[in-house]
Design a protein around this nucleic acid. Structure first.
Lengths: 346, 346
DNA sequence: TTGTATGCGTTATCAT
DNA sequence: ATGATAACGCATACAA
């Protein structure tokens, strides 16, 4: 069965198409008055036919699609779901839909997806822009969108202050990492390892930098042996941890790039018959919801992904309303959450 | 800067709009021949202007939006993210985008979201239809879409065989639960608890039913005290577990409705100074990626959400091609995955 | 208070 | 080999 159009409704109600439009869009409250009689007839016809306006035509006509693109780097990381959740909620509340793309680094389609978003004429874009840095093609598309004044909000680290002219939700783990390091140093740890499992180069540099700085500030050497770079999966993290702990002089404390890898590190530690935190202290990042249910409860740093997502959308909607407002930066500090996985150095 | 349209390109290239369309859509290979000369001029103009066709206009013209709606019940459950991931991948490969909606039970906007999907003229819909059952409004919208021949694929349990005329990816835990129960029974467990943390009534009935049937088949009573209904969050699961284990006669084995709740149950068990599996056996569902990294490694049943998602999209695309093909059911069996969290009854 | 006419950017059907 | 033109469904300025 064909979908009814405005014209069908108009015909059934015995009015013109314009009138249907007025009634459906409630312009009645505004400038165009509609008689109760007509109004009812139209509404009846709408109900009768199950008429639903066609968003494509509306979009074509009005210029905006009521759709926001969302690009996240790794769909398998709960931290990014929280962001997505926040974005979805805030957007839905404002009548916007989310076009979700997960651009993982293995995904060669990155540029294609990105370009497709432009093709779709999204009203705005929220992204974790890490993937941008290493794709010239993606950068070009970004420039394109920018030139067309498509509002873009990036959720990024402070340090990676590339000069794209976009609104930002800034949240990184630099200060939190300094806190973590001080915490561990105070507990007497001198050899602190870092499981650096990242999907894309540069991602996680906030943590790496602060880690190195803290070490130097404490007059400790930065031992490259203690920094294990690996892939972003739990399996990568598991093997990296084993490798590190089985080395000649293993660390007494371990930072992992995120809570997921902390879980696999926990497993690796257990498989080596060591205990957390007695034998080794462990710290994750992101404070994913289950972190506080782990055994032991995980010490971690928290970014509040939900809030990041909501703030990002708020920024986006504000710019949509006023395209020329000054560029904004919203800073969402990360908090250190002390739980049970850290303790005195053995 | 305004976005360039087909007309702008045509003007710059000194050709008609139709010609631009031909070149851009590569109809040249098909029936419409274009001279190399013209072709080049158009392509140059496209590059010059950074012209990107407007999907809205294309959609309006062609009738389809290259967009698939996806409705999942709980954005916080990794299982559903795996489904989403599968859907996204398969859809992207075919040039489709995903419009994601998470309809949680607390979300009063359920019908609204659903209706909105219709408003958007999505080409098809993939959903976990549990939420449908309890919203008359949602049912109406479903009927509406069905009547309009919008392809819908449901990912559901076998038993909940409502008679909507849709394609299905069937996957439930009925048989897997029977396996689980036999496994536990064989290990000597006689009092087996069930943490039934569900977001929506009826969800999880596959597990509940098989649980009860297995008990009866073994000549064991179904003790309502052993079945704790609670909400879907980890906190709910934590409290439910404590409540159950602190009761007069606690179980020696525990099923939780999903792995997330199993993690919180693990925590609760630990807080009561009990050990898994020595004091109590624990089984989850969904085999989320981190299940095998838990301490102890979690025995669970697995549904392969990624595959469910991919199959769902395949079904959808097939029906898009041939709207009148016979209705399909794809059955994806769940597997029992024995790990370390189950052992002999104490 | 309502109807008429026009255009949004495409594509497909005719002509030429 | 290319161009003119008519839809697609809607919203709005303007006319009545």
């Amino acid at each position: 069965m064909k979908r009814p159009t405005q014209a069908d409704v108009a015909q059934l109600a015995g009015v013109s198409r314009a009138t249907v439009s007025y009634v459906v869009n409630d312009q009645t409250g505004g400038r165009v008055p509609i008689s109760e009689e007509t109004r009812r007839r139209v509404l009846d016809a709408v109900a009768e036919l199950d008429y639903v306006p066609d968003a494509r035509a509306q979009a074509l006509r009005s210029g905006d699609t009521k759709t926001i693109g969302l690009i996240i780097p790794d769909i398998h990381n709960p931290h990014f779901w929280e962001i997505a959740d926040g974005v979805e909620q805030e957007a839905a509340a404002a009548g916007y839909h989310i076009l979700l793309s997960s651009i993982s680094p293995e995904n060669r389609h990155a540029e294609e997806i990105f370009k497709n978003l432009s093709h779709r004429r999204i009203d705005g874009l929220v992204m974790v822009p890490s993937f941008i840095y290493h794709s010239a093609e993606a950068q070009k598309t970004l420039e394109y969108l920018l030139k067309r004044k498509v509002p873009i909000v990036g959720m990024m680290a402070e340090y990676g202050d590339s000069d794209y002219k976009i609104d930002r939700v800034i949240s990184d783990y630099r200060d939190a990492t300094t806190e973590v390091m001080n915490h561990l140093l105070t507990l007497g740890h001198r050899r602190i390892g870092l499981i650096f499992g990242i999907a894309v180069p540069d991602l996680g540099n906030d943590r790496l930098l602060a880690y190195q700085d803290s070490l130097e500030a404490a007059g400790l050497p930065v031992d490259p042996e203690l920094i294990v770079e690996c892939g972003p999966t739990m399996e990568d993290g598991y093997h990296a941890t084993r490798q590190l702990l089985e080395s000649a002089s293993p660390p007494t404390a371990l930072l992992t790039i995120n809570d997921l890898l902390a879980i696999s590190a926990l497993r690796a530690i257990r498989d080596l018959n060591l205990n957390v935190p007695q034998d080794i202290s462990l710290v994750g990042y992101d404070n994913i919801p289950l972190a506080k249910y782990l055994v032991p409860r995980l010490t971690t740093a928290s970014k509040d992904g939900g809030k990041m997502g909501r703030e990002a959308v708020r920024l986006l909607l504000a710019r949509l309303q006023d395209p020329d407002r000054p560029r904004q930066k919203i800073r969402l500090p990360a908090r250190l959450i002390l739980r049970e996985s850290t303790g005195p150095a053995p």
